[in-house]
Amino acid sequence: MIVAERKPFDEIKGMVAGYKKVLTIGCGTCVAVCLAGGSKEVETLNAELKLNFGRDKIEFGSKTLERQCDMEFLEELDEIAGDYDAFVSMACGAGIQFLAERFPDKPVFPAVDTSFIGVNLDVGWYEEKCRACGSCVLGLTGGICPVTMCAKSLFNGPCGGTNNGSCEINKDQPCAWFKIYERLAAQGRLDQIKEISPPNDWRNQIPRKIIQPGYEERVKALG
């Protein structure tokens, strides 16, 4: 899932100051799971905002959509959008942009910092796992991502700083290449990393679009 963190209150406060009616919009998918921007977090934020600004200065509304990265759900806002002069979105960066695209006249402010694609380690505890490089090498590296989990994104690690299983950046951070070695050694697949991995084809350097097979015609028709 996409993991986000709520912005510091003062930063959010600074963005909405000066507006009269503000709608805080949550998202019921990734950011709800990671406890950053679901309906509960919308209510908490609004309560804080109301308390801070006082009831008469700014009026805060709330709404949580199933997904902000989908026009089908954004449509639900069409009727009420006109009642507000600004939006605060608690969705990930993708959701926020899609919201802004649906309502191009409306100032839209992010209430979260979108942090990474990651996993649930425990309630409230998440770890980054993927940088969406666009050419996945997990098959070669024992299911451990060298781009994300190695601090230098090395494809032929470990580097000279590897420190008894820890990364040179920090004793608490495991060295990705130490783990890759251990996992492949245990599986008898070390031969895979004896070959040199060639320079990566970084496919995340331009804005990307994907059309799944079979949908080309449909996309063409949509223009």
């Binding site: 601090a151 320079p199 990566n200 970084w202």
Partner: peptide, 13 residues
């Protein structure tokens, strides 16, 4: 940090 290629790939290049 850039880390476009690693030291092994730099040698090869």
């Amino acid at each position: 940090g850039v880390f476009d290629i690693d030291s092994m790939q730099l040698l090869g290049m």
